[in-house]
């Protein structure tokens, strides 16, 4: 009568990955109006940041306005995508706790890797769709400096960065397991530090030395450098390699590290009874 054991373990885990992806899709459909509101907000936010580029010239600055506007837009779009990816992963635990499903999910036989993989996969697809819509709107509105753009190179950098950021997000996801009350707030601080030090709207060089040191371990720094080089300068693969290799290393380090840390966090939560829905 038992269905699952008839399948090989890997197939059961794949079914579960699809379960997480499909569940998040169902939830997006149910909260569609909120999704639309958020999309409008994100798009208008990206537009407002891009207009700063035009504003600099209006207050007497001597800059290449088209270049600056494109530079800012790339930063806004990339930050929107990467921060969304980080937030979805880091909110994995607190979201389940809020919905009241945490115990059901954590007592199911699907592995934690499967759980986090499913969450990451949906976040990547959702983020790409959202960013593409925002880019499309901004492309129609602004005279952007994308004549030399290497789109394939930019996508490659983004894909590699997504992996390392998923790992980074998994590390942050453990925080609500350790402290149900304060864990999620700490992950918001991590997210805001990434925004500050990674050169989203300015070059990392303008930051104080200690902030530049933090920027070297942020995957967002390399993603921005690589994507801007590809889109604004049309950099080829050899030039982009400078941004890709640190991202590859971070992916190799952060993903297993994230899963290991999450495993330790789950073990601690089970020992201390913090896996309860109410925390």
């Amino acid at each position: 009568m038992h269905n699952a054991p008839n399948k090989p373990l890997w197939l059961s885990e794949m079914v579960a990955v699809w379960g997480y992806v499909q569940r998040n899709y169902f939830l997006t459909k149910r909260y569609l109006m909120w999704e639309v509101v958020w999309l409008v907000y994100v798009t208008i936010n990206a537009m407002a940041i891009t207009f700063i580029g035009a504003g600099v010239e209006a207050v007497g600055g001597t800059v290449d306005t088209r270049f600056l506007m494109t530079y800012l837009l790339v930063g806004a779009l990339l930050w929107n995508y990467l921060s969304m990816l980080f937030d979805v992963l880091s909110e994995t635990v607190s979201w389940e706790r809020w919905e009241g499903t945490i115990e059901y999910t954590f007592m199911s036989p699907s592995s934690r890797v499967t759980h986090l993989l499913g969450m990451g996969l949906y976040a990547v697809v959702y983020g790409i769709v959202q960013t593409a819509i925002t880019l499309g709107v901004c492309y129609l509105l602004f005279d952007l400096d994308l004549a030399a753009a290497n789109y394939a190179g930019a996508l490659l950098v983004l894909a590699v960065c997504s992996v390392s950021l998923v790992g980074f997000g998994i590390v942050a996801a453990v925080l609500p397991l350790l402290s149900p009350e304060k864990g999620q707030q700490v992950s918001y601080i991590v997210s805001s530090v990434l925004l500050l030090v990674s050169g989203v709207y300015y070059e990392v060089d303008v930051l104080p030395g200690w902030m530049q040191a933090i920027a070297t371990v942020s995957p967002v720094t390399y993603a921005l450098q690589g994507t801007r080089a590809a889109l604004l300068d049309g950099a080829g693969l050899s030039a982009l390699w400078e941004s890709i290799w640190p991202l590859l290393i971070m992916g190799v380090v952060f993903v297993p590290l994230g899963i290991f840390v999450f495993h330790l966090g789950e073990r601690y939560a089970k020992k201390t009874g913090k896996l309860k829905r109410s925390g």
């Binding site: 269905n3 699952a4 399948k7 197939l11 059961s12 885990e13 079914v15 579960a16 699809w18 379960g19 499909q22 569940r23 169902f26 939830l27 149910r30 909260y31 919905e99 009241g100 499903t101 945490i102 115990e103 059901y104 999910t105 007592m107 199911s108 036989p109 699907s110 829905r277």
Partner: peptide, 28 residues
């Protein structure tokens, strides 16, 4: 396990919750 609290995604339908729950156990 069935507990006193209904551990469901409240915005999802019964069918969607059931399909999700089944998949966690490898049931398509």
């Amino acid at each position: 396990r069935v507990s006193v609290e209904a551990s469901f995604f409240k915005k999802l339908s019964a069918m969607e919750n059931l399909l999700y729950g089944a998949k966690l156990y490898g049931v398509t």
